[in-house]
Amino acid sequence: MSAIIRCRGVEMTYRQGINLVRAVRGVDLDIESGDFATLSGPSGSGKTTLLSLIGGLDRPTAGEIQVDGEDITGLSADALADLRRSKIGFVFQTYSLAPVLSAEENVEFTLRLLGRPRAERRERAREVLAEVGLAGLEDRRPGQLSGGQQQRVAVARALAPRPAIVLADEPTANLDSTNAEELIALMARLNQTSGATFLIATHDARVIAHARRRIEMTDGRISADVRVEGPGAT
């Protein structure tokens, strides 16, 4: 399979008070299209920072990152926004939904940014909400949904534009075990059905257990990279 994400010599240093923090140190990484991979490691290991760099939310201080064959390290802020809109879906640790929009409107958010027609937006939003098990709750606002349901809306929003890549940062961190299990199973199933590449930063063993590729980071470096045969290898 071809690499949809390619990192070469990626470094990220930022200032924290008077100290310089080297969050990512010379990372070389290829993620194949359609993969379901986890980035794990202790807090401060650099996994969230690496995810931000791959998603174009931040720029590396050195090295090169290619997404779907395009070098994104030199892109402007607006070009990065366009890239994220068209190719990358994000799922964040907290539910990160617009509180003033309904579940359906939240899912439609990126579709609207992409200029999709109203009928197509509505149909796709309902389709993907049904896919994550939220049929019938389309008109509810985030405040009227449980944490697990909100995270499902966030997953639906990430998948609605059919992105090539889904980047998730600790998606189960705020969920109870039942909701966490359901979400993991859902993401694994969507990886199979949609063909999107999933890269998940997590230290949740249940998530890691579902991954076909398990990448570990320690002190900003990749310390282990293990491929497991078959999904849900546990």
Binding site: A77, D78, A81, A98, P99, L113, R157
Partner: peptide
């Protein structure tokens, strides 16, 4: 944070 998230989802700063 909401504005940052909107930008992460692809909303341009303008």
């Amino acid at each position: 944070r909401e504005f940052g998230l909107s930008r992460a989802l692809g909303l341009r700063s303008g």
